[in-house]
């Protein structure tokens, strides 16, 4: 009753929505880079709340299941197959003992999620199953690793996310929407001219980006007044810190809990998954919002996530969109073969 990892990228981790009240231990909240992807998975799998999933970073992986369950693929768009049958992102499907899911590529986005119904039986640490960088508190995902789950024989038809409005599953498609930024305790360390320049500059997402942070490039440089004498202070995901080279570096889920680089502001939490999934080299603009506006964005976002369950529909595709239609085993995993036989 387990998922066996046959292959996976070294930067893959297990992630749920993250830890709470962990900063006192010097541990950041962690959690999935694309948090809505976990909510999508929960709605597809009919789980009450998001659970820990395998976060595939940059590359896919190959996974074998030793007992029946439901699997959801969310986050980045992927090229993937269940045995020989293509499966798509933002969908859920049933697997049988011995089935192999192989994700050969992430086609849009940087983080893809593999979830099983009910989640994996992995110990919790500080209320979360997310891996902690530099600590072996949880399973280190690697080939040969086995993650236990409770079997689930219930096999409804394959389904996928229809989405609507802001919950539409389009956030892995690059957009030019600006990233919204709220002021923080160190915004006042920057001159108004520097702040104005920051919000009118066109940045490019750099090549260096991981769970700790993402670098940005522009031809301008940014620094705080008295930059080198700033006392280390609390940091959080979304913080835009100005490095010694004067370029912004946006802290992400596994950032350190304190840092000494000055921070001009914080990207609102509801935009962080979009930043995580954006390809390197893409344009980035920042726009200023108030903290009250950010709170309204968050509550609207949360309301949308709570309504996702109503937006799951059966998997129906137009035959013309399925070039290799005849190669499909169209009933695989859709209905239980033994039950049908018994009925006849």
């Amino acid at each position: 009753m387990a998922l066996e990892i046959l292959s996976i990228s070294p930067s893959a981790t297990l992630q749920d929505v993250g830890r709470r009240a962990s900063v006192a231990y010097g541990i950041s909240a962690g959690g999935a880079m694309d948090q809505p992807a976990l909510w999508h998975a929960a709605s597809l799998l009919r789980d009450a709340a998001p659970v820990a999933a395998i976060e595939c970073a940059g590359q896919g992986g190959t996974f074998r299941f030793t007992s029946p369950t439901r699997v959801a693929l969310t986050g980045a768009e992927v090229r993937a197959k269940l045995n020989d049958t293509p499966v798509r992102a933002q969908s859920a499907f049933s697997v049988q003992a011995g089935d192999t899911l192989s994700i050969s590529a992430l086609t849009h986005g940087n983080y893809a999620y593999v979830s099983v119904k009910g989640g994996f039986a992995v110990p919790h640490f500080l209320g979360s199953q997310s891996n902690v960088p530099t600590l072996d508190t949880g399973p280190k995902l690697a080939a040969g690793m086995v993650l236990e789950y409770s079997p689930c024989a219930f096999a409804p038809p394959n389904c996928f996310h229809t989405g609507s409005g802001t919950t539409k599953i389009t956030h892995c498609k690059p957009s030019h929407d600006p990233f919204r930024v709220i002021p923080g305790p160190q915004t006042g360390f920057f001159s108004q001219d520097t702040i104005n320049l920051f919000f009118t500059t066109l940045f490019e997402k750099g090549n260096r980006g991981d769970r700790m942070g993402i670098e940005m490039h522009s031809t301008d440089t940014f620094s705080a007044n008295n930059q080198s004498n700033i006392v280390s202070d609390f940091t959080q995901a979304g913080d835009i810190q100005m490095t010694g080279a004067g370029q912004p570096y946006v802290l992400m889920r596994d950032c350190q809990t304190t840092g000494g680089y000055p921070r001009i502001g914080t990207v609102v939490s509801v935009d962080l998954h979009r930043l995580a999934q954006l390809p390197a080299g893409h344009d980035i603009r920042f726009t200023s919002v108030t903290i009250d506006q950010a709170r309204q964005l968050e509550s609207a976002h949360h309301k949308n996530l709570m309504q996702l369950r109503g937006m799951v529909g059966p998997m129906v595709r137009h035959p013309k969109d399925i070039p290799n239609l005849l190669s499909y085993q169209l009933i695989s995993g859709v209905i239980s073969a033994t039950d049908a036989k018994d009925d006849e």
Partner: peptide
Amino acid sequence: LHAFGTDGFLIRFGEDLT
């Protein structure tokens, strides 16, 4: 007193480490 994100506050004692 400073706002720290949408669900936090920071109470800061000056700007120098003493």
